[in-house]
């Protein structure tokens, strides 16, 4: 448990936690996100799409790592496209990149505390916040082990811990379930649901069943454009028996993609 400050219960002055209009982002020379419109509110949003759909590039732009080359991007009511001051928006952000590097000689606790310090968590609150984040991802027993001694799944959980250490209002997780075993995936879904109660969580994944089980909202991207946004039931409703896939959600996914490609071609 932690104390909730007055700032957290104050009403938001913005309509959407994430608001992108005609967003264009380049990955190198290639325009990976091309005219995307996206509005996200509190809840858990699953980002689906084939390889090369621009998911990671979109995540990087939302995390303010990449500068959008066009369009409008607003996070928590702060404009972050162009040369705006990013500090305020970044304080409310949590980001887990797809392949993230870390300092191998740091212990898990030092890593999470260092990230908390970079995220400008008040200094007296850092040890408590780090301990809480480590407990939430189930790494308490490994808190004082060095990062280089951890397995792949544990490194990923340490990454999730650093993403949630500042209690972000916008949490961006790029492929967070890679390397987690089935039991950890279930725990992770509970954690997502817990965080999604009062924050906007965007999870990019290629596992359709993860999205249906854990997300309140599904976003489908293809070739840098938004194909579909709606609840898991709406995704399932798009699929027929004739579509490819083992589950109703997978059939809905492949039906939507096929229709989008047919429409573009």
């Amino acid at each position: 448990m932690r104390t909730i400050s007055a700032a957290e219960t104050a009403p938001a002055t913005y309509a959407w936690a994430v608001h992108a209009e005609q967003l264009r982002v380049k990955a190198g020379r290639h325009l990976a996100v091309d005219g995307l419109d996206l509005r996200l509110q509190t809840g858990v949003h699953g980002l689906l799409g084939p390889n090369g759909a621009g998911k990671t590039t979109l995540m990087r732009a939302l995390a303010t790592v990449l500068k959008p080359s066009g369009g409008q991007l607003t996070l928590l009511g702060e404009t972050v496209s162009g040369r705006a001051d990013l500090r305020r928006a970044r304080r409310g952000l949590g980001y887990l990149p797809q392949d993230f590097g870390f300092y191998p000689r740091f212990t898990v606790r030092e890593f999470v505390e260092y990230m908390a310090w970079l995220k400008e968590v008040p200094k007296p609150a850092i040890p408590g916040a780090a301990q809480r984040a480590i407990e939430r991802v189930g790494l308490t027993a490994k808190a004082d082990a060095k990062m280089k001694t951890l397995s792949g799944g544990m490194v990923r959980r340490a990454g999730i811990a650093q993403a949630i250490v500042n209690d972000p209002q916008v949490l961006l997780l790029d492929e967070p379930t890679v390397g987690l075993d089935p039991e950890q995936r279930l725990d992770f879904r509970d954690l997502l649901a817990d965080i999604g109660v009062d924050s906007c969580v965007l999870v990019s994944t290629h596992l359709v069943e993860d999205v249906v089980a854990a997300c309140t909202d599904v976003i489908l991207m293809s070739e840098g454009k938004l194909v579909f946004q709606g609840g898991p039931e709406a995704l399932i409703a798009h699929g027929d028996q004739g579509d490819a896939g083992f589950s109703p959600a997978e059939r809905g996914y492949s039906a939507l993609l096929r229709r989008h490609r047919g429409g573009v071609a």
């Binding site: 303010t64 304080r91 993230f100 590097g101 400008e120």
Partner: peptide
């Protein structure tokens, strides 16, 4: 190595 994590922080 941690540039992508650090580049998105307010610091």
């Amino acid at each position: 190595p941690a540039w992508e994590l650090i580049a998105g922080t307010p610091a």
